[in-house]
């Protein structure tokens, strides 16, 4: 029987894991670099108000035009990347550390310690993050710090639950028992036996969570709860451009596209990593 070899279709080729892995890492890496180098790359001061050049078309001086206050959109986008990515990393790292600590403790010690910590986690999980943010903002006033703290307080629970499960499965394995018999301290067991074995899932979840963190920061800023003007942040930029949606939609489109690209990259990267390591994603 002669079956003609079918050319792989575009979608199949796009889902080539290797390509996605390299492409997304390259894009995100480049973005992190530009964010770091924003002061040197940005053509203008992102905060410089110059009403003489407000709402300009793209030109050689203003590659992406200007906003209603005459500020350079490209410069603001570049500086906005610093806020979005930087604080996403901050939220990720801090909630990861809290989650790792609590989850590992609960899973490793077990018993009533586990029960106590997990019931506490259930309590936190039952509390919607938006309400928490609104509450914090209500008390301390709007600002990035409040948003970050609120997101941190909510995010760590997911890490904690995941690490607890992973550690509990590992703890049943005899190599942990063998390590105890071999005289390894609990700290050494955590360092050499538990951590290397929970690293792959950690990487996957971390990548997926980064996308969420960026989305959350932008959403809060868009609602006016997070970053306050004149600071540049993608969500806040969409908020500022909102009034000009009919005349100058690009003011919303540029930051919107950036948010979309970054989150899509993080998600695709997470997906391909999870496939590579054979890790199942936790339900969110």
């Amino acid at each position: 029987m002669n079956v003609p070899l079918e050319r792989p279709r575009l979608l199949d080729r796009l889902s080539n894991q290797r390509l996605i892995l390299i492409g997304c890492s390259a894009f995100l890496g480049l973005l992190f670099l530009t964010a770091l180098a924003a002061p040197w790359l940005a053509p203008h001061d992102p905060f410089l108000v110059n009403l003489a050049v407000k709402l300009q078309e793209p030109s050689w001086t203003y590659p992406l035009g200007t906003d209603p206050l005459g500020r350079c959109t490209l410069s603001r986008l570049l500086y906005g990347a610093r806020v979005s990515l930087g604080f996403a990393v901050l939220i990720f790292a801090s909630s990861l550390l809290i989650g790792l600590l609590i989850g590992t403790l609960a899973g490793y010690i077990g018993g009533w310690v586990d029960q106590l910590l997990m019931r506490f986690c259930d309590g936190v999980m039952a509390f919607p993050s938006l309400i928490l943010v609104l509450g914090l903002v209500g008390i301390f006033g709007p600002g990035l710090k409040q948003v970050i703290i609120a997101l941190m307080l909510v995010q760590w629970v997911y890490y904690a639950r995941m690490f607890r499960g992973l550690v509990m499965t590992l703890k049943e394995k005899n190599f942990i028992a063998a390590a105890r018999v071999n005289g390894s301290s609990h700290w050494k067991i955590f360092r050499t036996h538990l951590l290397p074995n929970i690293l792959p899932p950690l990487l996957v979840i971390g990548t997926l969570e980064m996308g969420w963190a960026i989305m959350d920061i932008s959403a809060m800023s868009f609602l006016g709860l997070g970053v306050q003007s004149p600071a540049a942040e993608w969500g806040a930029m969409i908020h500022e451009g909102k009034s000009y949606i009919r005349t100058n939609p690009e003011l919303m489109i540029y930051p919107g596209v950036m948010i979309m690209l970054v989150i899509a990259s993080f998600n695709l990267l997470g997906e391909s990593l999870s496939e590579r390591f054979g890790v199942t994603k936790p339900p969110k």
């Binding site: 394995k173 005899n174 190599f175 063998a178 071999n182 050499t192 036996h193 074995n197």
Partner: peptide, 19 residues
């Protein structure tokens, strides 16, 4: 601890796969 050691049944579960 140094004087009492153990050999388990399932050797694959008794060693850390990353070492």
């Amino acid at each position: 601890r140094q004087d009492i050691q153990v050999v388990f049944q399932d050797s694959f579960a008794a060693v850390n796969p990353k070492m």
